[in-house]
Computed example of a mutant assay.
Amino acid sequence: MLKSHMDAVEKYLVYKSKVLANAGHTLHKGTPRESFVKEFLVDHLGSDVSVGTGEIIDCDSQPSSSRNQYDIVIYRNDFPKLEFYGGINGFLIESVVATVEVKSLLNEAGILQSVKAAKNAKALSPSVKQGSRFGWVPPKVANYVVAYDGPAKMSTVYDWIVKAHTELAIPMPTFAHLNRIGVSGTALDGVFLLNKGFVKLDNSPLSLNDDNNPKPGTHVISDSDSGNLLMFFLALHEICNNLQAKLLDPVPYVQSADYKNITVV
């Protein structure tokens, strides 16, 4: 039932996106396609998280500094956020579960941009007081790409990822199959091309690698005209499906504030 539903939604998203093909400006094509994915997430993710758009900060972020704007930010509801108005927010890295970049046409330049943005998100430093936890908690924020069209083979996308890592001097993730769930990715965690396939970093309990006879490697590549939205949904559910006592530690955020004439009595 779940796969049948997700396959139907996957086809529906692609079908709706084709209505925009006649638009003359790329913004008029890209923005609605982002909203299609956002609506899907709002309709299908649990109530513990929300979906927004904007940039991500940590305790070291400076005003007016250059930062990535992420098409979609999935964040925990029990943390604060900054309101920049116009539908754009600033999210504390402590609250962010995942980011999603939406591409109308996936190409090499788009992968390069997404790898760089993902690396920047993972470089931010959460300031939290961590208590007990239950379930799998990803080591760092997860970063995904969802695209409506692109190359015929997902191996091409993987080659673009490797090339982007080389060009940006970002090491590719390395781990053995047995310790994969404790190792963070270094940039993108997955690229999902609707109706064509996906490339997914294999560092979570959700794996298509055979636990009894695992093949060496760090990524799973699939060429398939269905099941891609299902895998994306399950990957997101997996990183949201945990219980953890995590509180924002405000001290690092206060250290940069220049308070005058402090008296302790």
Score class of each variant (00 low, 15 high):
N77F: 02
A118S: 11
P126Y: 12
E101I: 02
N77C: 13
K38E: 11
I93T: 07
L193T: 05
N120R: 04
F134L: 15
Y144Q: 01
K81F: 09
S125T: 15
V51Y: 00
D78I: 14
D78S: 13
D159C: 08
A121R: 10
I262A: 12
V191A: 06
E108A: 10
P32Y: 05
I181S: 15
P151Y: 06
G217K: 08
P32H: 12
M6S: 03
V141W: 03
P32C: 12
S95H: 09
K200S: 04
V183M: 14
G30D: 08
E34C: 10
E83H: 07
S4T: 10
A176H: 11
E10K: 06
E55Y: 14
D58I: 00
G54M: 00
I56Y: 01
P32A: 13
Y148M: 03
V183E: 11
Q113W: 00
P126H: 13
S61W: 08
N213I: 07
T186I: 09
D71M: 00
L82M: 13
R67K: 09
H237I: 00
F36Y: 14
L208W: 10
N195P: 03
H25F: 15
V251L: 15
S184L: 06
A245T: 09
K119G: 03
G185Y: 06
Q130R: 13
S132A: 15
G87R: 01
A164T: 02
A142P: 00
K16P: 02
N261G: 09
D48F: 04
V146C: 04
R33D: 11
V97A: 11
L2N: 14
H28P: 05
V97D: 06
L20M: 12
S66E: 00
K196S: 15
V115E: 03
T31V: 13
V73Q: 04
N203A: 14
V183F: 13
G30A: 14
A21D: 11
P216L: 06
S4Q: 08
M154I: 07
V191P: 06
E34A: 10
V183I: 15
K3H: 04
V264D: 04
K129T: 15
Y12L: 15
F91Q: 11
I74Y: 05
A23N: 14
N179H: 13
P250E: 08
G131P: 08
Y259T: 15
A164F: 02
T31K: 14
N68Y: 00
K260G: 11
A142K: 05
P139M: 07
L20H: 12
G131L: 09
W136M: 13
W160D: 07
K116H: 07
L41N: 09
L178E: 15
L229Q: 01
F175V: 02
A21P: 01
T174E: 09
K196G: 10
I74N: 02
M154A: 12
G150F: 04
G190Q: 04
M1P: 12
H44C: 06
D258I: 14
F175G: 04
A169I: 03
L230A: 10
V42W: 09
A142M: 00
S155N: 07
D223A: 11
A147Q: 03
